[in-house]
């Protein structure tokens, strides 16, 4: 099996999807000849032409709004928003149109489309190239909100997303684009978006996370293992719909849980995890449910390393809930 970075894997998935189905089209800013500012769409314009890989005018509301019209017509558009921080001019199209089309039309019209967008920190980009906005989207019924954590996960989830009949916000953790390589199957395969993944099995503490925080949690788990704490990591994959059962099953086994995210703390997806665990697994809990998160501040430029949860903060939280009596 070939070794791929997440960028390689995403690019491979997009090539496979476009080869498999002529209705798959891409549109966005600089995705054509340039191949995207990160290179995710490299080679697609050359191979599939400008009618299927479209460089658009600079308007996120136009990119998503026209993609909605394409999807209703019967295509499977995959618009790219260059950075998740730039998505907000298109937010009305996402929330009011793309997410609600199936429901409000009684199923007469649907939006099978994937909005791809790089998310999170890791490139010293300040708050307009670094934010984690998953909670905005996870609060919108009708959307799927997906974030992969490894190259193989990225490819399988992307192919699932493109051939799914629901609209998907596909958040690409840009910190992991070139984070490392992994063996990834050649050709077409999918990964079930509805099921969370046990990224590490353990019996003492459940760590729930997703995207770029996953490898940081894995490093923390390795460190605390030396102190005898056996961590189970649940990689959510999808934040809407989300797989509560896998989280609850893990917590019922370990009795201790933290949720780790890069996003700001208040009203975040980690808060949803904590509330659900408290509501449905209280009899199993032996410690408070902890949240490790970004702060309730804008994403900073110079102090990115302070803002983003690192191995030390995750390790501290694991040790706190593990030793709570």
């Amino acid at each position: 099996m070939p070794q791929m970075t997440m960028l390689d894997a995403l690019n491979d998935a997009l090539h496979i999807a476009m080869e498999k189905d002529d209705d798959v089209v891409m549109l966005g800013e600089d995705i054509g000849k340039k191949g995207g500012v990160f290179g995710t769409t490299a080679g697609l314009h050359e191979k599939f032409g400008e009618m299927r890989v479209m460089d658009t005018p600079l308007s996120e509301c136009g990119i998503i709004g026209t993609a909605v019209g394409m999807a209703i017509y019967g295509l499977r558009p995959v618009p790219e928003i260059q950075f998740q921080d730039f998505i907000f001019p298109g937010f009305d199209q996402i929330v009011s149109e793309m997410a609600k089309m199936r429901y409000r039309s009684g199923g007469h019209f649907t939006c099978p489309m994937v909005v791809r967008t790089p998310s999170g920190g890791g490139i010293r980009g300040g708050h307009y190239h670094s934010q984690s906005g998953e909670a905005y989207f996870a609060h919108t019924p009708g959307l799927r909100v997906v974030m992969p954590s490894t190259p193989r996960e990225a490819k399988g989830l992307m192919l699932s997303a493109i051939f799914c009949d629901d609209p998907v916000i596909f958040l690409e953790p840009k910190a992991l684009y070139r984070h490392g390589k992994e063996e990834v199957e050649e050709g077409f395969f999918t990964i079930d978006m509805d099921k969370a993944r046990i990224a590490r099995e353990g019996k003492d503490v459940t760590v729930v996370t997703w995207g770029a925080m996953t490898p940081i949690c894995q490093d923390a788990a390795t460190e605390v293992a030396e102190k005898g704490i056996d961590v189970e990591i649940v990689d959510m994959r999808s934040m809407l719909p989300w797989d509560a059962e896998t989280v609850l099953d893990s917590v019922r086994k370990t009795g201790r849980c933290i949720a780790v995210q890069e996003a700001p703390r208040t009203c975040s997806f980690a808060s949803e995890i904590a509330a659900t665990v408290a509501e449905k697994a209280v009899d199993s809990l032996e410690a408070p449910v902890g949240r490790v998160s970004g702060f309730d501040t804008p994403f900073p430029y110079a102090l990115e390393h302070v803002y983003k949860p690192d191995k030390k903060r995750v390790t501290n939280a694991i040790e706190y809930v593990a030793s709570y009596e």
């Binding site: 479209m54 509301c61 136009g62 998503i64 709004g65 026209t66 993609a67 909605v68 019209g69 394409m70 999807a71 209703i72 017509y73 558009p77 199209q93 149109e97």
Partner: peptide, 8 residues
């Protein structure tokens, strides 16, 4: 915008 996308 939807109409423009459908026409595209």
């Amino acid at each position: 915008s939807h109409a423009a996308g459908a026409a595209r």
